[in-house]
Design a protein around this nucleic acid. Sequence first.
RNA 1: GGCCCUGUAGUUCAACGGAUAGAACGGAAGUUUCCUAAACUUUAAAUACAGGUUCGAUUCCUGUCGGGGCUACCA
Length: 597
Amino acid sequence: MSITQVILEAVSDFVFEQYGEDAPLQALTLQKTRKEFSGDFTLVVFPFVKITKVSPEATAKLIGDALIERVDELQSYNVIKGFLNLSLHPNFWIDYLARNSGNARFGFRPKGEGAPVVVEYSSPNTNKPLHLGHVRNNLLGYSVAKILEASGRRVYKVNLVNDRGIHICKSMLAWIKYGKGRTPYTTGMKGDKLVGEYYVKFETELKIQVGELMLAGYTDEEIARKDAPLMKEAQELLRKWEDGDAQTLAIWCAMNGWVYEGFNQTYRKLGVEFDKTYYESETYLLGKELVMEGLKKGVFEKRSDNSVWVTLNNDPLDEKLLLRSDGTSVYITQDLGTAQLRFDDFYPGEMIYVVGNEQNYHFEVLQKVLQKLRKPYADAVYHLSYGMVELPEGKMKSREGTVVDADDLFEEMVDTARRTTEELGKVQDFSEEEKAQLYNILGMGALKYFILKVDPKKNMLFNPSESIDFNGNTGPFIQYTYARISSILRMAQSGKPLQAKVQLAPEKLNLLERNLLRTIFDFPGVVLDAANAHSPAQIANYAYDLCKEYNQFYHEHSVLNEPDPQISHFRVKLSEMVSTVVKNAMSLLGIDVPERM
RNA sequence: GGCCCUGUAGUUCAACGGAUAGAACGGAAGUUUCCUAAACUUUAAAUACAGGUUCGAUUCCUGUCGGGGCUACCA
């Protein structure tokens, strides 16, 4: 039982024994004592006043006295207004370090036996290269998966590639017409970039045709778009594809292959990975079957034109199309199929979809449709909805060319890391390979931290003209703290392994050391909270706080130059513990930490 | 129109309904014979507005105003 449980149990025992009432459950929580007051844990006593019938101060004193008597680890308490600040005996903290020192998995739970979680993220289209929006998605998905794993869940990371549909046919068509047989191998271009070019080419050529049609008498641009020869051809290509036309499929395969090679490069750079990749081309048919199932069950309806619809909330305005009149599937059709497939593959207790908040409605609909189908996994669907990444001038728009390309961004970050590091001149003895590795760790770390420290559900702003900072509340700040500790540990060992034993006379424990231990103590709980909230931001903020505190300690107190050998060794072990927590926290964000920088 | 999200220093982000709303960047002023100054210290600067619930509201509720998204036989 953890010390917080011990204390809270003592509180509730005391209240019950003394007043014959159960303490309000909501009141039985401890918070971290704020810096400006002395103490480790704080109990807010206002909710107890009703029971004790005395003032908040008197109530706090009553509970405080009772706790001192009942909990051995407690040394003292103080009362400020209705706040009861509890201080543990220094021995508790010294012992806490001793108990956890050397545990490389501190803060992580072992894998549990419960139902697994499936986390879908990334989910790219094969007609466009990845951009900053995808970067947020990938980082969030990967990190949430890691955090859930650390909280003891079994996790499967899956990707769902949108590899079919009219948009793919557009880039195929443009490549057939204008591509002159260009390939990534003949041009040296990254595959996703090459294919993306033809998607753009389709749009520009289409625009020309639409312009001609408008001149020829069309009044509605929408209709002109639909009637344009290129659009007709694209639709024809889609029909050929669905009919299994060999030549069409061959081109489709080849072009998607190029794209996957490109994506994989980007994924490698990002450091994300998947346990399984689904392709829409392989799941949309199952989706159609589910629609048929719904028709049989009578929860969907077929119209005279053969299209299939579902009515939600008994509201005729809330009708959604599930199958087009020509029998082809729409977005939600294949999502029904993949949900089923995923359930059959993993029997998950939770299916997390990392998808932007512009699709909130879509996922509401998906869940309701699954409920109508009475699928056992309907309630397991969880949409991890995240806000968009905005530029100073607003939303990224591919048409206006304001999209921030993922690969370009990575390159810029790594380049900034190189320049910054070279200016500081601390790693001149590094080999070229070590340097390249370091710049990558730092540049990508800065980017990942920048994105993950923001609450997922909030929109965030990215300003391309101001590069991401390397000072202050940033990834490199945290990496720097880690590198500094590593340096101390190297020197402390200097050949021989560190003495494992932690011991210290209680009166020698100073305030900053105590603060650090108090913060380290919180890490396992932060991991669980972050898992419940699906929020890497909580991990990021925690890591920053810890590093901030360590840097203060580092500035105030010397570790290796401390004359008292017991204190010096204690500080080495404390530093080692901090570095473990920092490394573990950053690993949950998918961020590497360097031994030197 | 309907539905959903969101509004905190100049800027980018924090704050299970709890104490004097925290950081960072930028601004101002400092710290290096001492384990890495990508650090540390000091300083000015914010809860859009109006009600309500509560011992206590940035947080919950209502309204107004501002920003974003969705409301396709696109994905």
